[in-house]
Amino acid sequence: MDEQLKSELRRQGVVATSLQELYNWGRKSSLWPLNFGLACCAIEMIATTMARYDLARFGAEVFRPSPRQADLMIVAGTVTKKMAPQVVRLYNQMPEPKYVISMGACAISGGPFKQGYNVLKGIDRYIPVDVYIPGCPPRPEALIDAFLMLQKKIDEQYLTGPTRPRHLNADMPSEFIVPEFGEHDLVPTQNRDVWQVPLVNISNAGKNESGSD
């Protein structure tokens, strides 16, 4: 529809919209997060929902304890290897359309605990992530920013065509491999369909550092 005509109509009190806009508006305006905290970031997540930062302003205050009723997973905190299968399982149990915010350095890459033997180096090894928020922990404002970013992302989605979101594409998976506990590590250590090891060019790396450190 012609944008000029649409704004002209709106001035006359007639709201014209497309199904896509309506659909996206509906989805982005009532994101129900899963009531699910892992570590330090969860406290900031709670603080975001409290009176001062008031996440309710963005239509996302309804924290659901059950994954069946939620459409946004905020991975708030360090994902340990012992916890990773449960996180993936919870994600699998959420109905489509579903989104993931990876909150904090730990959920992105393991953060300060990256060297730990029981720490998963980023939840994106097993499930797709929509928005990453750096910080340790990110401030409530950062979480709100992530919400706005996610809303914008939803708003820009097309319902048809090759770029349509995953839940409208029957060929795309909505469930992902749940890792199992092995003798030394999780099996598999990553879901290769979701995440590939970014290979560093080892022939050049480290040459500049010789003698330093």
Binding site: G110, K121, A205, G206, E209, D213
Partner: peptide
Amino acid sequence: EYEPTAHD
């Protein structure tokens, strides 16, 4: 773990 400036 991938690091852009891997060393040691």
